[in-house]
Design a protein around this nucleic acid. Sequence first.
DNA 1: CCTTAATCCTGGAAGC
DNA 2: TGCTTCCAGGATTAAG
Length: 283
Amino acid sequence: MPELPELEHLRRSLEPLLLGRRIASGEVRRPGYARGVSSARDLLAGDEVVALRRKGKQLAIVGGSGRALCTHLGMSGQLVVRPVSHAPGAHTHVVWGLGADHRPASLLVFDDPRRFGGVWAFPTFEALERDRWSRLGPDGLGIEPSDLRRALAGSRRAIKAALLDQSVVAGIGNIYADEALFRAGLRPRRPAHTIAATRERSRLPGDALDRLCEAVRLVLGEAIEAGGSTLRNYVDGEGRPGAQQLRHRVYGRAGRPCSRCGTPLRSGQVAQRTTTWCPACQL
DNA sequence: CCTTAATCCTGGAAGC
DNA sequence: TGCTTCCAGGATTAAG
């Protein structure tokens, strides 16, 4: 559920809480949830937090020693700073103490009921980039038409499947894939290679590929501004829910009228995901 | 090259 | 009210 906008919002909300602070301790409460961790040191214990970096849906915590932790929230993950009095729950998998060495002033808590998320420890941020983030395509916020053209050319799969593929664009999930395709006026099932084709019969202005690129950036950017969208269980670094002011145009609105033309929105399965689109506006 | 299905997991919603 | 069932989904893997 948390996609790029939620992660970027989380990154920004955690920055003032973590940057420059010392991590006093680190503990993995559920064995196997954190990979590459054999000591608290691997969890950055003893380090000062020097940077929070994001690529797609993944957020990295970089320590003063050079070590880096990559976090992925999966579907239900939450990364939140809590008071030390906060008791760990059944789904609290990793806890860090923040502040002075033996008496942490607060906790950084990673909860994840469905456990699709995880933590990966690396000796350096460069190792994280090389061994993990290299599999990701360009980040959705800065996606360029040339990136998309290269990835879509010659591919016969549905454009929605391509957008969900993190090696094509990093950060898009089911919600923003549908929203971007609506904004670009493109049908989710349309073969990817036709997006880059020169002949374009759409009523909408511009080349389809340029429109899609712009739609991806627009939809992601708007959602960040809205404070992490409307997701049910998204909370920022202080545990506050999303601002809820972003209204999705198609996601979750099957059967309701299209916000642009009034035609009832249609839904079905595309790329193994529930997909909603306007049969009149999207070609 | 592509799609489909299965897998991991639990909370919430819907159905009876 | 209380039970069962289904669905949601990111990423990976295997099978067709």
